[in-house]
Design a protein around this nucleic acid. Structure first.
Lengths: 343, 343
DNA sequence: CAGCGCACCGAAAACGTTTGCGATGCAGCA
DNA sequence: TGCTGCATCGCAAACGTTTTCGGTGCGCTG
């Protein structure tokens, strides 16, 4: 059931059929009606490979995420919700979302180059942005549409959306200081992810704005951002001569490990230690005491990412009222019971 | 940089280049070496569209999952780990995994038909298998390779892997009965998902094997399998004249809601009520008291699914030592502190 | 030397689609 | 009538690849 079958069934040329199906203006209204009717009747659907070959476009968009081969998660379900938002935005454009899982033992840059070389996707979402991320320059140079989930120091102007770490640090520190805290620890990723640097800078600025000195010992860079990572980060903070009375975490998964370590030290989280985190997954509501955290509307973030990508793709730019998307994503503080005043 | 450029650069025909790249035997060893060298040097990578068009194959495999548009999750990170396992198995075959998110307001059968019609994938994983699932007959009839994550009553022999609900029900009920429980509630999905029926049958069989009568009131079918669903299921069980002393849940997300409802009723989970669940996500370790649950090695399950699919695809069958995969996936009980004897 | 088989390679068709170009017919206008 | 312009459509090329078919040259055998 190709376009040829459809044409011979209607006794017209394949060119006319193609034009009718694609809504071109130079085809008679009655002819178009007959074509669409026959297509529906015979169950004709265009072959994507043929179309891609001719147009040089695949109608597929890749979302590149990095895999943790050991735990088997990629982003702790962080991305699942983002996908949904992207999909919602893509539905109207007949675009397919292709999740590209870069294995952790593979170099993200090499992986990306292979994907691009295969011409498998028309555009890309990239995440886990490094401080100096070669993928960005590569994509800009090749003129491949993309949007980054996260900022980078890499040169060139390109679309990106990042979480509002400045806002988080400011609100969290202000809140803790208002409650009487003076020694506030921060746990960020210890990898070359740029967000660790951004978060740390925002944290230092927030401390300074509150007239507090920055103590390097209170900044823990954790290789893992998992429960294990949280455990060890709490361990490091508790080992200090002058312990902090509050901890600010980059996600809420680490809070599980922090709670565990606190309990082992005979401390009760939310009483002997204040904890604030960022919420990545809806399942975070379990923690007891309830974690005070910053809520991310991930579906909306996904939608916005999709809009930003479409706006940078010539074929879809007209459908988007936006220009170059470069913005931070605001987050709302959800008060829990984990950050009381110090004892 | 097409195969034509490569050929003219080497002063040989494109056919020879293609044969050399694809490892055909009818090409001189020296010629092959030169071709591979030039391909690497010039950075040539075959165009997937051209290849797909000629061969009628796309090198892409779809994984169809259903989306919950409200919460934004699809399977509570259940699938994230499965993807990783699939990807591990696919890596050697140069297959791409395409995640196909069926919106919740779309009919899965219609969605599947559109995907198939577009010839976008060579094979499919389907999940969320209904009791009578029209997708299965459709795929069998069209001779499209697939494997189902879940059993179904739909006719025809096809590859599938399902969780070992019989084993779960037997072990859980035996364990609870051995500890003195006599009234054990079961919470299963209230939708047409087949797993709800399978689990309920296994539960009844396990009760019977222990000489216990089946009380229909103790079987709660919950529309939602989320935290909310768990809350309401616990609500229903607590409203009974004769309350159960233990609850068996279909996943651990519901346990969050169950715990909450128990606390509201002045009951302490793991003391006034025994709770056992299935573990879908590694983050489940947070619950306090620790949930006694059945652990699923999701990465391995993903690998096995991929093997089962490959074994059913003519192009890859030879690489797999397996035949038709139809099996249940064993799960190990991880003892927590949530299922003590009744008070 | 004739004949045969084999290794290797080039030519060309085919996959299904889109699109530029030209052809046709017809209405409108001078 | 003759010319122009427009609406509509057919023809054919092109996208990049794989694969069949046939051809060439060589070595070997009888």
């Amino acid at each position: 059931m190709s376009i040829r079958d459809l044409a011979s069934h209607l006794n017209i040329s394949i060119g006319t059929v193609s034009r009718a199906l694609n809504g071109r203006s130079d085809v008679n209204a009655e002819t178009r009606r007959r074509v669409l009717e026959a297509a529906a009747e015979l169950g004709y659907v265009p072959n994507q490979s043929g179309r891609s070959l001719r147009q040089g476009t695949t109608n597929a968009i890749g979302f590149m995420v990095e895999t943790n081969s050991e735990t088997g998660t990629h982003g702790d379900s962080f991305f699942s919700s983002i996908y949904v938002g992207v999909q919602k935005e893509f539905a109207a454009h007949h675009l397919d979302l292709v999740v590209l899982l870069c294995p952790s033992d593979d170099d993200p840059y090499d992986y990306l180059r292979r994907v691009v070389a295969r011409r498998f996707v028309d555009g890309l979402f990239i995440s886990a942005i490094q401080r100096h991320d070669p993928r960005i320059d590569f994509l800009i140079e090749r003129e491949i549409p993309f949007i980054a989930l996260g900022r980078s120091l890499s040169g060139g102007s390109h679309p990106w959306i990042d979480l509002d770490f400045e806002g988080v640090a400011t609100k969290a520190v202000n809140r803790l200081v208002a409650r009487g805290h003076r020694r506030i620890g921060l746990v960020t990723p210890g990898t070359e992810l740029n967000l660790g640097y951004v978060f740390a800078d925002a944290y230092r600025a927030a401390l300074s704005a509150n007239g507090l000195a920055y103590d390097p010992g209170l900044l823990v860079r954790s290789e893992q951002t998992s429960e294990e990572g949280g455990y060890h980060a709490a361990d490091a903070l508790l080992a200090l001569d002058q312990r902090p009375t509050a901890m600010l975490l980059v996600n809420e998964i680490m809070a599980i490990g922090v709670y565990r370590r606190l309990h082992e030290a005979g401390l009760t989280p939310g009483r002997d230690m204040a904890v604030i985190g960022l919420r990545h997954s809806p399942q975070a509501r379990f923690l007891s005491p309830a974690l005070t955290c910053f809520d991310i509307s991930l579906i909306d973030l996904g939608r916005r990412l999709a809009q930003g990508l479409l706006a940078s793709m010539p074929a879809y730019r007209d459908s988007q009222p936006f220009g170059l998307v470069q913005e931070v994503w605001p987050m709302e503080l959800v008060a829990g019971e984990s950050d009381p005043p110090p004892r």
